[in-house]
Amino acid sequence: MTDAGSAAGLPDVIRLGTRRSALAMAQSGMVARDLEAVTGRRVELVQIVSEGDTTRASLASLGGTGVFATRLREALLAGECDLLVHSLKDLPTAPAPGLVIAATPRRADARDVIITRDGTRLEDLPAGSRVGTGSPRRIAQVRAANPGVEIHDLRGNVDSRMARVRDGELDAIVLAAAGLSRLGADIDLHVEPRDLVAWPTAAGQGVLAVETRADAAPALLEALRRLDDPVTRYAQEVERTILAGIEAGCHAPVGVHAFLDGDRMRVRADVLGADPAQTVATDEDVLIGTISAAGAEGYSRDSGSADGDAPGATPRASDIGHEIARRLLAAGASELISGPSTL
């Protein structure tokens, strides 16, 4: 629902920059519709092509998934668009100068799923089965679940990835449940969701990040804040603080998920080794109190604001994340991080 005050100071057309992939367009379209409802303004999708969209090289060789964000952010800073929508898991944890994550809408399903032709569980795939994924975290998790399978690099859109299973080129692939849901994909293959406690996913997986310039019009910043979900913001800040605290890039073999339930939070974090016996893991239960919209303000490292400014922010999300990161490092996590420390 819009009001005259929230719409004042906004352009007639708000430009939302997005990658041109089907998933990026679907995610951006979701935010665009919500922003139109809040502002009463039309939101136009502006397609921006990144290096990651035009090369077939593996993500690891390109320096990780942050390659998708660089060109988008350049376009935002250059004034080619007014805001961006990212998959938060793809963003570096370090703040981007001049930019702010103004909203993290309610999180979608954060689980990974295994896609197969016949519903065979990952653990039951016969030796030599071909499993597709390009993520070091997923590679380590797949090998821990079934050491006998062969890992094959996986690029392309969701349809082309699933086609490699359907056509028999691969026996299984690993995808994010959130992407499948947002695409509304009609899946004629078997989907096996993985439990987040046993198989924690990337920090911020399932979360969309709505980014704009730090000097954006106050009316736009206020409109975007109305899309923010405080519980999602708190959880992702804990996860991303852990990732930053152990100096791991978003492409490192780290799985972390914060489960919020009332006034408590459970955090599962795994720093995965090539040998499953090397994995450093922690499973924490923390009393956090009630999270309100006011109490969530200031939590995000991406906003550049001080956590101490957040009313009722005790304990702070960043404090929890730093403490868990400290424990992981004390247990030897730094020796297992093979990915780049920054993206």
Rank of each mutant, 00 (worst) to 15 (best):
V46Q: 08
V13Y: 07
S21G: 13
P11V: 07
L35P: 05
L35S: 01
A22V: 14
V46L: 08
R41M: 05
P11R: 00
L35M: 01
V43K: 02
R41H: 12
A22N: 07
R20M: 10
E44N: 03
T18G: 05
V43F: 04
G17T: 11
I14D: 10
R42H: 14
V31G: 03
A26P: 11
M25K: 13
Q47H: 08
L35V: 02
G29W: 05
M30G: 06
Q47T: 06
P11A: 04
R41P: 05
R41F: 10
R33Q: 14
A24V: 07
V46D: 05
I14M: 04
E36V: 01
L45N: 01
A26T: 15
S21T: 15
A24K: 03
M25D: 05
G17D: 11
V46H: 10
A24I: 05
P11N: 05
D34V: 00
M25Q: 13
G40Q: 10
R42E: 15
T39R: 07
G40E: 13
Q27K: 15
S21Y: 06
L16D: 05
P11Q: 06
V43R: 06
G29F: 04
V43E: 12
A24M: 13
L35H: 04
V31T: 07
I14S: 00
Q47I: 00
A32T: 09
